[in-house]
């Protein structure tokens, strides 16, 4: 069962110029993206800065209104299109999608104690009794392996890893059907990163959680995700199961991305594919496939025709004209 289906999502930001603030152009931050997330799985949305992965997650949360497309969200036995609903009508659904933020320092209010930070969503959603709230906060702290005695402390007393646990507890408070985690471990030290990743995996097993995991670090992604969706300049280039995509990428951008990750073993002399030039500008993307100016397999057709995302084998989606003929290199 799919918790979320995103169909042909677009988000354009206008570029305004001059005295009259006339629209001079558009940044196509998300340019026709489709994917789905099944109940109980983790879909990792990866790509480099500016590829639109965060904009996608913000559209799903309706922190940004999408320009076009559908965001079908399954809740209480029915399916609603979050892209179309007016703001007021969204309110009953907001509690079902929760967010874990990247920066554990700025995402917790420094003037509130932990009990209030975690209890606030409960209060807003009608848990009036303080007694009841404290009980639930205790439960939540226990789930994220923090002592209940920390309840009356302020965030400044905690380390980055502990704060991230508080952020996770807050996200869990309302039993959400989907948790959007945007770079949840990238601000943490490696020794702490491992603890938080393990916690996310544990909670998923215990509570049957569904994650949309937005990240740039492919090593982290490999440890947590069931499927991986790769974006490049506002478009989806490839979606596949984690083991498949890492072992045998089908899109040249995925191949280059994988080869660029430094491997923590000096004996592996990596043959890195160095991409020439910079990432395309989403305000002025190249015609055809956005990746063609940097692609070493590009042919004439790639410069004019935009490749569609196609299912090249069961559960493998690739948008590349040459997906069927290329043999690309992955990592084992």
């Amino acid at each position: 069962m799919n918790v979320l289906e995103v169909v042909n999502l677009r988000k354009y930001f206008p570029i305004r110029k001059g005295l009259l603030r006339r629209i001079a152009g558009q940044v196509r931050a998300v340019d026709g993206v489709s994917f789905h997330i099944k109940k109980g799985e983790t879909l990792a949305l990866v790509g480099e800065s500016g590829c639109g992965k965060t904009t996608v997650s913000r559209c799903i949360l309706r922190a940004l209104p999408p320009s076009e497309g559908e965001i079908r969200f399954a809740v209480d036995g029915k399916v609603v299109d979050l892209a179309k609903l007016p703001k007021r009508a969204l309110r009953p659904y907001r509690r079902h999608i929760q967010m874990v933020f990247q920066d554990p320092f700025s995402s917790l209010n420094p003037r509130m104690v932990i009990a209030d930070i975690i209890g606030e969503p409960l209060l807003i959603n009608g848990m009036r009794s303080g007694e009841e709230r404290r009980k639930r906060v205790k439960e939540l702290l226990d789930m994220v392996q923090l002592p209940a005695a920390y309840m009356n402390r302020f965030p400044h007393a905690f380390s980055g890893g502990q704060r991230q646990r508080v952020g996770i507890a807050r996200a869990l408070a309302l039993h959400p059907s989907l948790i959007v985690a945007d770079e949840p471990v990238s601000a943490l030290d490696v020794s702490v990163q491992a603890q938080i990743l393990n916690l996310l995996l544990d909670l998923q097993d215990r509570l049957g959680l569904t994650y949309l995991f937005v990240a740039h670090d492919l090593s982290v992604v490999k440890h947590v995700s069931d499927r991986v969706a790769v974006m490049y300049v506002g478009r989806m280039v490839e979606i596949a199961g984690t083991a498949d995509i890492f072992a045998r990428p089908r899109h040249p951008y995925t191949e280059a991305l994988l080869s660029a990750v430094p491997k923590p073993d000096p004996r592996l002399k990596s043959e890195r594919i160095i991409l020439e030039r910079d990432v395309a500008d989403p305000a002025n993307p190249p015609p055809g496939c956005h990746f063609h100016p940097r692609c070493r397999y590009a042919v004439e057709r790639c410069k004019v025709d935009t490749p569609a995302l196609q299912e090249v084998e069961p559960n493998r989606w690739v948008s590349c004209h040459r997906a069927h003929e290329l043999m690309l290199r992955g990592v084992q």
Binding site: V190, Q193, A194, L197, L201, D217, L218, S219, V220, K222, H223, V224, S225, D226, T242, A243, F246, L258, V261, K263, P264, D265, V331, Q332
Partner: peptide, 9 residues
């Protein structure tokens, strides 16, 4: 350290 060579999940 998370490694790109790890077994998934």
């Amino acid at each position: 350290i998370p490694s790109i060579m790890a077994t998934p999940r």
